[in-house]
Amino acid sequence: MKRFTILSAIALFGAAPVVPVAARTVPAAAATADFAVGPQYDTTHVYVAPEDFDRFVASLTATFGGTSTKKGAFQVTPTTSKTLSQLVLTPAGSVSVFGFTTPIPFPFGAERNGYLVTDIDGAVASAVKHGATRLIATFPDPIGRDAVVQWPGGVGMQMYWHTTKPNYPTLATIPENRVYLTPDAADAFVRSWTGFAHGRIVSDDRAADGGEIGQPGKVYRRIRVASGYGRMTVMVSDNQLPWPYGRDVTGYEVASLQATLAKAQAAGVETLVAAHTENDRQSAIVRFPGGYIAEVHSPITQ
Rank of each mutant, 00 (worst) to 15 (best):
L7E: 09
A9P: 05
L12H: 14
V18Y: 07
A23C: 12
A23H: 11
F35W: 15
Y41D: 01
V46I: 12
R55Y: 13
S59T: 13
T61P: 09
K70R: 15
T77A: 15
T80V: 15
L87R: 07
V97N: 01
F98L: 15
F100V: 05
P103S: 13
R112K: 11
I120H: 02
A123P: 01
A125V: 00
A127T: 04
H130F: 14
G131S: 05
G131V: 02
R134S: 12
I136T: 10
D141T: 15
I143L: 05
A147Y: 03
Q150P: 01
P152K: 04
V155E: 08
W161Q: 15
P166Y: 01
N167M: 08
L171T: 00
R178P: 05
D184R: 13
A186M: 13
T194W: 06
R200D: 14
V202A: 14
D204N: 15
A207Y: 06
G214D: 07
I223Y: 02
Y229G: 04
M235I: 04
N239S: 08
L241E: 08
P244Q: 04
G246I: 10
E253W: 07
V254W: 01
A255C: 06
L261D: 02
G268P: 07
A275W: 00
S283T: 15
S283R: 13
G291K: 03
I293H: 02
H297N: 11
S298C: 12
